[in-house]
């Protein structure tokens, strides 16, 4: 595919172009075989779900410069202004049953953390199961939604990723300012959105193959980046345990040791760091 050359030093808010991302990806990729960049949409997850229901193949990626209704878990609003971040979603049709897809959370967080380090030089941690932190602040959020789909195409997963790239502290609302951050805030060099977009797709693609062949390697790589290890956390589920996070089990579930010494395995729910 022919594509124009894009200068590395281009202004960070230069618009993304699908051709420019394509040109940087390896030919044998699965994820990012088809890339669409929209100026604006409601939510990139909804775009992918619509395409998937119309039989779109695995690996489709939709970026949007701006989302009118970007969302996180449980319908929480996700700020996604034009030019300051990467807002995109991927279509996956993983093998096996939906009940085995929970590991996608760690896979997605790992790809973003690795790409953030490669492209910007920051040190990225993973807050179980899928927040990416730099210097203790959340720089990326992930929303994965699975759908049973139509019989002929089968079930699919929509992986929505939002990465804060160029935000300044006062770009975040006052209640988020202490917890949220952007890569540019912590990087010693200018952050190029095009380079970051292609790097994150490459890492996700390579790790997707690894997740299918050796899922425990993804868990192990995430475990090394676990921001909660040794920290005291509380599960916000009704009657949920409180204790010190000791790491992950082989399935990537969080292990907590309570004050009585009992080990708890967390499979879901919100966590509060104490």
């Amino acid at each position: 595919m022919s594509s124009p050359r894009f200068d590395e030093a281009a202004a960070d808010d230069a618009p993304l172009h699908a051709d420019a991302i394509h040109a940087r990806l390896p030919a044998d990729r699965l994820l990012g075989r088809e890339i669409v960049v929209l100026d604006e949409t409601g939510s990139t997850n909804d775009e992918i779900a619509r395409a998937a229901n119309a039989a779109a193949p695995e690996g489709l990626v939709v970026f949007a410069e701006r989302q009118r209704a970007g969302r996180g878990r449980q319908g929480r609003r996700w700020e996604s202004r034009a030019g300051v971040g990467l807002w995109f979603s991927l279509l996956l049709r993983p093998p096996g049953q939906m009940s085995g897809w929970a590991g996608l959370s760690l896979w997605a967080a790992l790809g973003v953390a690795e790409a953030a380090e490669t492209a910007t030089g920051v040190v990225a941690e993973i807050k179980w199961p899928n927040d990416v932190l730099v210097a203790g602040r959340k720089v990326a959020g992930i929303l994965i939604e699975t759908h049973a789909g139509k019989a002929q195409d089968g079930a699919f997963a929509v992986v929505g990723i939002g990465i804060n790239v160029g935000h300044r502290p006062d770009d975040f609302s006052s209640e988020l300012r202490d917890r949220a951050g952007s890569l540019a805030q912590f990087s010693q060099r200018p952050v190029n959105r095009l380079a970051l977009a292609s790097t994150v797709l490459m890492r996700l693609d390579a790790n997707y193959r690894l997740w299918q062949s050796a899922p425990t390697e993804i868990v192990a790589a995430c475990s090394r980046r676990c921001s909660l290890r040794g920290r005291r956390v509380r599960s916000l589920l009704p009657g949920g345990p409180e204790g010190v996070a000791t790491g992950f089990d082989a399935a990537g579930q969080l292990l907590l040791r309570d004050d009585a010494g009992q080990l708890h395995t967390l499979a879901s729910g919100e966590l509060q760091t104490l």
Binding site: R73, S99, L106, N130, I142, L143, A148, A267, G269
Partner: peptide, 28 residues
């Protein structure tokens, strides 16, 4: 059903009328 922050859409896989919601919202 949320598992490790993956939001899984669950279908009825059967036909009929909902007689009882047995599970509790927000609980494991």
């Amino acid at each position: 059903i949320e598992a490790m922050k993956v939001m899984n859409e669950i279908k009825a896989e059967t036909k009929g009328v909902i007689a009882e919601i047995v599970a509790e919202n927000g609980k494991p």
